[in-house]
Computed example of a mutant assay.
Amino acid sequence: MPQTKRTPAGEALSSLILDLFRLNSLLFTAGDRMVAGLGLTSARWQILGAIVTAERPQPVAWLARDLGAARQNVQRIVNDLQRDGLVTFETNPHHRRAQLVVLTEKGRHAFEAAMRLQLPWVNGLADGLSIKDLESTSRVVSTLRGRLESGQEPDDRA
Rank of each mutant, 00 (worst) to 15 (best):
T88R: 05
A158M: 13
V87N: 01
R6V: 10
T104W: 04
S130L: 00
S130I: 04
Q75F: 06
R116S: 12
L63P: 07
A36P: 00
D19K: 15
D19V: 15
E90Y: 07
L86K: 02
P59A: 06
F89P: 00
A43Y: 04
R108H: 12
T41P: 02
E55T: 09
D84F: 01
Q72W: 06
R108V: 09
H94Q: 11
G85A: 04
V74W: 05
W62C: 12
R145A: 14
R22H: 14
T53W: 08
V122D: 04
A69H: 07
S142N: 14
D156L: 08
T4G: 09
A36Y: 06
D127E: 15
R145N: 08
A43L: 14
G128H: 04
S142F: 10
T104I: 03
A61N: 13
R145H: 14
T137N: 10
R157Y: 11
V87Y: 03
L148W: 06
E11M: 11
L63E: 03
G128W: 05
R108K: 12
G68C: 08
G49R: 10
I17N: 12
E11C: 05
P93H: 02
Q46I: 09
L148Q: 11
S136F: 08
P154Y: 07
R44V: 02
A54W: 03
R145G: 10
T53V: 14
L27V: 12
L81D: 02
T137Y: 12
F21Q: 12
V102N: 00
R22L: 15
V101Q: 04
V87P: 00
L23G: 01
G49E: 13
R56N: 13
A113R: 11
Q46G: 01
L86M: 09
Q58D: 07
Q99V: 08
M34T: 01
D66F: 04
E112N: 10
R33H: 13
G85W: 00
T4I: 12
L125T: 12
P93E: 01
A110Y: 05
L100R: 00
G39M: 05
R22T: 15
E135W: 05
L86N: 06
T104Y: 04
A70L: 12
N79H: 06
A9C: 09
I47C: 02
G124N: 01
E112M: 11
N92H: 06
D155Y: 08
L23K: 05
R33I: 03
E153V: 13
N92P: 03
V101I: 11
R65F: 10
F21Y: 06
I77T: 14
G107N: 02
P2E: 11
I17V: 15
Q82C: 06
T7N: 02
L16T: 05
Q82K: 04
L27A: 10
V102P: 01
S14Q: 02
P59I: 02
L20I: 05
A113N: 10
D156S: 06
G39A: 03
V101P: 00
S142K: 10
L16M: 09
L27S: 06
L26D: 13
F21N: 11
F21C: 08
L67N: 00
P59C: 01
S42K: 07
T143I: 10
R6Q: 02
V141Y: 05
R96Y: 08
R147F: 14
A158G: 14
D155M: 03
P154W: 03
R22N: 12
